[in-house]
Nucleic acid binder design. Structure first.
Lengths: 144, 144
DNA sequence: GTCGTATTTTGAATGACTCAAAACATGAGG
DNA sequence: CCTCATGTTTTGAGTCATTCAAAATACGAC
């Protein structure tokens, strides 16, 4: 149910590895995202508030900002949804969101490696990254 | 500089054609978006406030909501930016945003027709639409 | 164990947008 | 052309997600 010692150590290592101090709130936040990817700040706060009384949503935002900046987390911002966070993998994967219930799943790039980084015409822009979100109905919300 | 009669009539027609009543604020908002695509509610309000004193940002939001719902406008929501609006064209084009100055340009689909609507694995989702935003540096912000 | 600095706490403030009730204008019908 | 019902806008308040700032605190290098 709760984090075992091994996991906690691994989480602490990840945090240390990007040059950040290891603190209780940070380990707790990373742990929650580990077990539930694509979660927003509010729900992270709800998950840790029992084990860390005295924490606030603002604190969670602070931790998330530090992690995102350090490259430990990836922040995704689908339309009509608060920002969601996931542990960063180096691949360039995208997301599919259920327009009915909001469920989010990972989706690999359609063709081989990041075709989405090569738009046909970039109007002179130097393309650095792409943000791709698919919308549809998840299996549960497809009635029939 | 300002809308001539012909344009105003054309705008009114577009509005009527989707079954909405033609009102001053609506014509004004559509006119602004016509000449400056990818604009947000606040800036639309700034553009029309002189010619329509007594208008408010909320009113603009109301007009935009009505237009979006009627399919007259497309609403795009890039990360770190308020919602932007553009006159809807039926093609499935995407956008490229300058990470420095925020400039937005249209981008056609990378390969032929909407390849972005066919992710490799949809995890059982019924894909309905895709939201694709590229990020990079616009010509102006590329120093050197 | 001590101490400087990074981090968290606490509380307030912002930006973008939505909601609701009252005043008003559009355009269909007479 | 005038009237009236209904669709729109106005006005004002309220919400949600997030950020900012100052004070209190904890991490971990020494």
């Amino acid at each position: 149910m709760t984090t075992d010692v091994t996991d906690a150590a691994a989480l602490a290592d990840s945090i240390r590895s990007v040059g950040l101090k290891v603190t209780e709130p940070r380990v707790a936040v990373l742990d929650v995202i580990e077990r539930e990817p694509h979660i927003d700040a509010e729900r992270i706060f709800q998950s840790i508030r029992t084990s860390l009384p005295g924490t606030s949503v603002q604190a969670v935002h602070g931790v998330l900002a530090a992690f995102s900046q350090a490259g430990l987390l990836r922040r995704i911002e689908p339309a009509h949804s608060p920002a969601l966070y996931e542990r960063r993998v180096d691949d360039n994967h995208h997301h599919i969101v259920c327009s009915a219930c909001g469920a989010v799943e990972d989706v690999d790039c359609a063709v081989g490696h990041s075709p989405c980084l090569v738009p046909s015409s970039a109007s002179g822009f130097q393309v650095q990254s792409a943000e791709v979100n698919f919308w549809g109905l998840c299996p549960n919300c497809q009635t029939g």
